[in-house]
Write a protein that binds this DNA or RNA. Structure first.
Lengths: 208, 208
DNA sequence: TAGATTGTTAATCGATTAACAATC
DNA sequence: TAGATTGTTAATCGATTAACAATC
């Protein structure tokens, strides 16, 4: 498969490529060449799977030595579109919202949090990690002015749908949903569920 | 399939059951009967998939009206093992760790955070959300004393493997990993990756 | 050379979707 | 009754694994 046409990958492929990138960034920092077997065994998956994923990135390896680590890392970054800067805002400046605004790893992947929004008067005007907390009433202006299309949603569950409706109306098209609520949105809006509870229960179930 | 033998579900099934539960908790709060079609269309999946998942929980529906909402909710809770209380600790009392210690939804699913641990002397002795921050040196004693088997890992990336080795040695068998690092652990230890970056990139890729 | 590792095809496995009889 | 919805089987689809020739 030598398709060079930009095609969207399956979620599984994206998830694995991200993990390969983590390995190259944090685990195999001083490696010049990395084999599919090394990556596969760190993740507990099949090595031919790794070779297939890497082939999708257009990187060619060498028999006996493996894949050039630096080139592979850059190719993954390119395929994942990490270089595109995403200016995003956080709606809901509670604990989780505040934490995410400080989560420095996001920066490495093109995610720049530019402001937080909250409905609590006591929080407004304060800054978290040098980012201002603004009132919900300024959402629309801010989003249009700064050309934002992506929002991290960390409001309380009982406000989630209401705020979502507002965001959709303003024109936001990506909602990264950290609330435990299912959101009703029109087809042109993408919601990414961060199913934290589900992941915990998976862990408990995968045991042995 | 009328298997009543306790069998572990696939991760996909667990993830979906959790979402059905969210719907019953936050979206369809006053519904007596819910149809597979209603659930499916909220999640954008096939309705026969929903019926299959529900069958796994041992709940029977009624033609024309659907499934009894309350009974379904309880059956899901039972299948997911939500009633088992899990006393867990957070290692790394930074922003993310602090946020998770306050994440009240966890409580609803049997997850009780009992303490935080950190290596920073300035943090030790403080409390977050009524939970004490203790020094790493007390990890071993605490874990054995309180019979903890599960840890939320929110340390900086460069400390992740080192702390993991310590935890494994102490006898922890579940590590819920919020760092962007791949952890090397023996086979009897389960690591659940919270691949936040990967999920963001999925969202961007799923667009249209 | 012998050993190791790629790139790729074929085989297997599992998950999703379609379809429809049963029935409230 | 007619319409709606379940429960379940069969068909399809996609993802993972096995296998191996090519070759550094």
């Amino acid at each position: 498969m030598k398709e060079n046409i930009k095609k969207s990958f399956s979620n599984k492929v994206i998830s694995r490529l991200t993990l390969y990138h983590c390995i190259l960034t944090h685990t195999l920092t001083d490696t010049l060449f990395v084999s599919s077997f090394e990556i596969a065994s760190l993740l507990g998956i099949d090595d031919s799977q790794v070779r297939k994923d890497i082939a999708l990135c257009g990187v060619y390896g060498r028999q006996k030595s493996g894949y050039p680590a630096h080139e592979l890392k850059q190719a993954i970054e390119q395929k994942l579109g990490v270089s595109q800067k995403n200016a995003i805002i956080i709606v809901g400046a509670g604990n989780l919202g505040s934490a995410l605004s400080n989560y420095s790893d996001l920066m490495d992947y093109g995610i720049e949090i530019v402001a937080l929004f909250d409905s609590d008067d006591k929080k407004i005007g304060k800054t978290i990690n040098k980012k201002e907390i603004l009132p919900i009433s300024q959402l629309s202006n801010f989003i249009h002015h700064k050309n934002i299309n992506t929002v991290i949603l960390t409001v309380p569950p009982d406000k989630a749908q209401e705020i979502t409706d507002t965001l959709v109306q303003i024109g936001v098209c990506y909602i990264w949903n950290f609330t435990p609520c299912i959101l009703k949105v029109p087809k042109n809006v993408t919601v990414q569920y961060e199913n934290i509870i589900g992941n915990f229960l998976q862990m408990k179930n995968n045991a042995h």
